[in-house]
Structure formats: structure tokens, C-alpha cells
Design a protein around this nucleic acid. Structure first.
Lengths: 138, 138
DNA sequence: TTTAATTGCTACTTTATTGTAGTATTTAAA
DNA sequence: TTTAAATACTACAATAAAGTAGCAATTAAA
């Protein structure tokens, strides 16, 4: 699959903030840790804050903290904060209407895989992502 | 998931040609059947021909026919003729290196779904797609 | 040999995503 | 009250995907 770069960065930054325990995270420190461009990551951080996934504090000594507990943050929530998610769950052949009752030619074969994908994004939380502490790629 | 529009059209046109039995298919007839823009579908047809999935005949009374038997045409082959497929099989978080030995934090959860997706695209042929003749959306 | 119907090629336009630049605003400390 | 370090905002640039336009090349029939 291909999540947008923006969503990928967003998941990585929330994961990083969950894993590395600091009082507050400045944009500049996150930028250097994740190797993402300055203004681009800042915009992502602002969007995550607008959606309540992060909480931001402006002014000197400000920065970002998690807006809620890592076991309450799902992947789909992060992706939704970045982009429209319909495209990930729409018809694989691009039909407007494609349901069990009115399927496209690939629907029956594709639907089970799409359902797993949806469950993956809906059920997986940031806590789950970090459940194996030996994996520390960000 | 989101296959590119180009790949979606390509799969639909090859399916249509398999299902509707005609001696030869002109670009203009396919365009009107599928409701895709003129030049865009022509380019797709040329690309499919270059990859041997279709065979084209130029000049008056020319057109396109299938380049091989529908049970020999896989979805991945059609997608590959249209775009680079690496993105569908790469790391869900976008890491260059992400393998069982050197996984990202989502790898273990994502890999099984990705493998099903790969199998779906690799194993499904156009014949399979049309195995249920009651479904005739193109 | 001319013509009409066809595919093939090249270049352009539009749209969405990705990324960059500059400046305004906020806030705690000196 | 000033200043430094931080986030927020607005506008633009670069790239890739999607779609359009026009013409060239090909070929069978008249």
C-alpha cells in the first residue's frame, strides 16, 4: 500500500514522542531526530495539534506533548488528520458504487483484504506499534 | 488501497475485451463503452500493447486484440505496464530498508496484509476476474 | 493513388502532493 | 519592557499524476 508521505511522517513523529520520554518536544528537536524538512514537519505538528492528537504550547519553552494516551491514538486517526482516507477504502477499480449488493468484478476477491486493511488502521494504536521495545526505527 | 486511475482503467479495458467477444476492438468503441477520455485511454492502450498484453493493428480497420489468453494475464502484469509497483509493496512507513531482519515498528503487523495484497495482484488473472458472469461492471 | 479510419507520438494543461520561504504571533525569562 | 525561543500562518515552488489537444504515421478499400 502507499500511505502518503505526510501520513507516514505523522505516524513516525507520534511514535517517537511516545517512545522517547521527555517533558515537551520542540519542533526543532523532532526535525533533527526524524530528518524531515523544517516547515513540512511543523505543518504536520500543527495539524496533529488541531485534531487533538498532540497538544501544543506556544511561546518560549513551548512545544508539543501527546494530546491523549498512546493506547487511545489509532493509526486511522492520525491518517485522517493528514488526508482524506476514502481512497484507501474505496473500490479497487475506482467505481463510485461498489458494494456486496452491487459489486465490481474484483469486489469479492478484494473485499476481504480491504477489510483487513481497515481493521489494521482502525484497531492498531500507537501503544501497539511500540509493544516490541527492541524495534526502534523512527 | 489505491491503484492509480491509469491502472484501474487498464484492468477495466482488458476485462471488457475479454468479456465482450468481438474480432477487434477500436479505441473509439472502448472509449465510449468505458467512458474514459479519448487520448488518455489511447495512451493506455498503446502501453498495454507495448507490454504484449494487447496486440495492436494500425491503419484502417485496425484496432486491438488480446495479446495472450486471459488466464495468462495477471493483475500485477497490467499494473506494472502502467506504473512502478514498488510503492505498493514497500514499507508502510516509507523506510528504505524494512525487512523481517531489520523491521520498522509496524512491519510485523503490516507484512501479512501486504503479502495477501501481493498474492492478490500476482495470482489473480483476468479469467479469474470474469469467473462470475453475473457481474458485468466495466 | 486518394481517402477515411485507424493507432502512435509529442507537447501541453490541470490538479494534488510534497516541500520551501518568510513573517507574524505568542510567551516566559531577564 | 525587551528579548529570545518557540509555534502559527500565508504564500509560493517543485514534482508527479491525470487528463487534453493536435498532428503524424499507417493501412485497407474505393
Amino acid at each position: 500500500m502507499n500511505l502518503s508521505n505526510t501520513s507516514q511522517y505523522a505516524i513516525r513523529v507520534v511514535s517517537y514522542m511516545t517512545f522517547e520520554d521527555e517533558d515537551i518536544y520542540s519542533a526543532s528537536s523532532l526535525i533533527s531526530k526524524l530528518g524531515v524538512s523544517d516547515k513540512y514537519l511543523k505543518r504536520i505538528l500543527t495539524q496533529l495539534s488541531e485534531h487533538g492528537i498532540l497538544r501544543s504550547t506556544q511561546g518560549r519553552y513551548g512545544g508539543y506533548i501527546l494530546g491523549k494516551s498512546p493506547d487511545k491514538i489509532t493509526l486511522i486517526e492520525i491518517v485522517q488528520a493528514m488526508e482524506s482516507v476514502e481512497k484507501y477504502f474505496g473500490c479497487v477499480l475506482g467505481f463510485e458504487s461498489c458494494t456486496d449488493e452491487d459489486p465490481c468484478t474484483l469486489h469479492n476477491k478484494w473485499a476481504p483484504i480491504r477489510n483487513e486493511l481497515m481493521e489494521f488502521l482502525n484497531k492498531t494504536t500507537i501503544k501497539d506499534v511500540l509493544s516490541n521495545p527492541s524495534i526502534i526505527k523512527f
